[in-house]
């Protein structure tokens, strides 16, 4: 499927979809959305790229090694930020009681650790869906390579 219209339109649209997904992730504590919704939007932009070009072009943009590294790294990032609450003398995922400055309400960098938590969730969800896409549509040889 090598259509000029589909390739041109997806090349135009994919950066805006990714920008919107990053907006939804970064403003997850101020507006509707958050890590899961933004990660799903970013992943759907990569799925659109892989469908409109071919799978090899998509794999060159985001390889399987990078994707599985991001998938594990998102979960470990969440865990490390949660454990920082215990390190600073309070509960798991403690925000204000661990001494984090909450900032001005309504600003982008407010709410303490919630910004970083939704960043980790977004990376995890996006890379999980991209990995699912490549392993389900990859064919016989790459479907059971790892994971």
């Amino acid at each position: 499927m090598d259509d000029l219209v589909i390739r041109s339109v997806s090349r135009l649209v994919v950066p805006f979809i990714q920008l919107y997904g990053l907006y939804v992730i970064f403003y997850g504590h101020l507006s509707p959305g958050g890590g899961f919704a933004g990660g799903a939007i970013v992943a759907s932009s990569m799925i659109l790229y892989g469908l409109s070009f071919n799978l090899e072009a998509g794999s060159r943009k985001l390889g399987h090694d990078v994707s599985s590294f991001m998938e594990s790294g998102g979960a470990i990032w969440y865990l490390i930020i949660g454990l920082l609450g215990i390190l600073f003398g309070s509960n798991f995922l403690a925000n204000r009681y661990a001494g984090v400055s909450l900032g001005t309400p309504g600003q982008l960098f407010s709410g303490g650790i919630i910004f970083f938590l939704s960043l980790g969730i977004g990376v995890k969800v996006a890379s999980t869906m991209i990995t699912l896409f490549y392993s389900l549509s990859g064919g016989e040889d790459s479907s059971g390579s790892n994971n």
Binding site: P32, G33, A37, A40, I47, F133
Partner: peptide, 18 residues
């Protein structure tokens, strides 16, 4: 609107392809 955003991205996009 949170669920609406997730439903539009997942239900109409990713799940259909899967």
């Amino acid at each position: 609107p949170d669920i609406a955003m997730t439903e539009a991205a997942l239900g109409a996009g990713v799940t259909t392809f899967l």
